[in-house]
Amino acid sequence: MATEHDPFMPRLKTESRDAAILLSPFFVFVAVFIIYPLIASFYFTLNDLTLSDLKPIFIGIDNYLELFSDKLFQQALLQTLAYLTFHTAVGVPFGLAMALLFNQEFRGRGFARACLLIPWATPPIVAAMLMYVLLNSGFGPVPYAFEIAGLLPAQFTIFGNPDLALLGLAIVSLWKSCPLFAFLFLSGLQNLPSEVVESARVYGASGVAIFRRVTLPFLKPVLAVNCILSGILALSGTQAFDIVIGITNGGPGYRTYMLYFLAWNQAFPWNRLGYGSTIAYVVTIIAVVFALVLLRIWYKRK
């Protein structure tokens, strides 16, 4: 904070005191509802706890050890990583492509841009439901269209298919995420000073070269943000939970179980708050690692 010219610095003692009084509700709330649960959540991972009977039983690191032998955990871990990778590797470039497209001049551009926020605003369950209606094998027009075109066998189901269900969820997830990425990229593109692009054109650079040498480096920060955002969404955002519980509920045959969903499942339906917390922390660790890895890649490259 500025030491010079800081206009907010209250000059008088009474002002400081007034301010403190005014702000105490905020700090009380933060202390009770944020700081305490933060510490408690870690504490829970070391305990066995049920919601019905709120007495924690200290079990040390047993929860963590259980993870290693839990087959479902391992399966969920793999599926989560696959989902995460797909979400980021496919979603972010698509978002960038969309942004570049919407950056062009065409009639109805304002309308198109307004549409970008719609998937973000849509309640995830509703999104799940609508996509289900679109894609389900019973009456969904999309599989039907593919069927007629001869590209898919009859009664093809994506969500009922153990091998493809996760992919189906990923597509639903991308519907929600890509426009958001596009929106962020677009904001970044707006800031690109047009003189830079114009002078490149004057020098005869081709569109592709301009993109690689000028646009892309400029967008690096936004790109990093989007990748990290993608990671967070895929791991622990509504994309991870709401969509899963809405469409497949982990099935078929546990093939769409992901860590975040598993954590919730263990904590509430199965009433094992300690174990659930533990898995949630594992998710956090993965998210942090993911972010760090990305940052290292981006900041080592030039």
């Binding site: 933060l38 939970f241 917390s277 922390y281």
Partner: peptide
């Protein structure tokens, strides 16, 4: 992640 906070 929200879940970690949700439990406590």
């Amino acid at each position: 992640p929200a879940l970690a906070m949700l439990i406590p």
